[in-house]
């Protein structure tokens, strides 16, 4: 179910501005990969190219290759909508649909893609909420609005919504940065569980978090404001945090800059 991501020599642009340059990396299936680096270095931008969300922004385009197993995401004739069904995403701020109940939020991906049948939907909703460790908290109020939950619950609701469409890969863009430590812990536990089924890529500003949850870590940096961000190094998390091969990585991790 989970798939491998192979990125080779990817450049990302906003109009004529090159935001990220020359990224090459491999993300193994059923693993967690963390992206760290200072603000503005292109982590999130790069993450969004992995499910073609980048091109939603006017002027957004990429050069290079992103392979999901043996399928080129940017090949001709590839439907970005289909890509996004395969590669799900969780955002920085919890964004449940305000007009929908908890149930409908989780079922949104299926319902909006035309899948009907109450029994099937009931099953998926329960399974996804279990998967997001939210079922016990909301099972008695599935018809209440999703926006009425706490921030941490909302974020888990968004994760449930993302896994309800059964993606191969789950991208997380600073999923805990708007949450308190307890909710963060809940999400981190969840990530460790989800790892057994999905390929997970997470952007985080929290280095302890990267160290706790990820199997490999990629460090991004940019030479100066206005210059494109680059992948400095990617390696096993343990190696990055104990013995990085590039000095900039060590400086960043040890808090000497950034």
């Amino acid at each position: 179910m989970a798939k491998r991501i192979d990125v080779s020599d990817l450049n990302v642009y906003y109009g004529s501005f090159k935001a990220v340059e020359g990224v090459t990396m491999t993300v193994e299936p059923r693993s967690v990969t963390a992206f760290i680096g200072p603000s503005g270095c292109g982590k999130s931008t790069f993450l969004r190219t992995l499910n073609r969300m980048h091109e939603v922004i006017p002027g957004g385009r990429v050069e290079g290759k992103v392979m999901l197993d043996d399928q080129d995401l940017y090949g001709s004739g590839v439907d970005p909508v289909a890509v996004r069904r395969t590669v799900g995403m969780v955002f920085q701020r919890p964004n449940p649909f305000p007009t929908m109940s908890i149930y409908d939020n989780v079922a949104a991906g299926l319902k909006l893609n035309g899948i009907k049948g109450k029994k099937k939907l009931d099953e998926v909703v329960e399974k996804s909420l279990h998967g997001a460790n939210l079922w016990n908290e909301v099972k008695d109020r599935l018809n209440k609005p999703g926006a009425g939950l706490s921030g941490g619950q909302q974020q888990r609701l968004c994760i449930a919504r993302a896994i309800a469409v059964e993606p191969q890969v789950l991208l997380m863009d600073e999923p805990c940065s708007a949450l308190d430590p307890i909710s963060t812990l809940a999400i981190e536990d969840l990530i460790s569980e989800l790892k057994s089924k999905y390929t997970i890529v997470i952007v985080t500003h929290n280095m302890q978090q990267a160290a706790r949850v990820s199997d490999q870590t990629a460090f991004f940096n940019l030479a100066a404001t206005g210059k494109p961000g680059k992948l400095i190094e990617i390696a096993d998390t343990q190696k990055i945090f104990s013995n990085p091969s590039v000095k900039a990585t060590e400086d960043y991790i040890s808090g000497r800059f950034g």
């Binding site: 939603v56 909508v81 964004n95 649909f97 909006l112």
Partner: peptide, 23 residues
């Protein structure tokens, strides 16, 4: 309408016109 809602919908693989209609 916050852009995040549109993006959340796109990220679920919902086409743009349906995002507009349903979200």
């Amino acid at each position: 309408v916050p852009n995040e809602l549109r993006e959340a919908s796109y990220a679920l693989g919902v086409p743009k016109w349906k995002t507009i209609m349903k979200v």
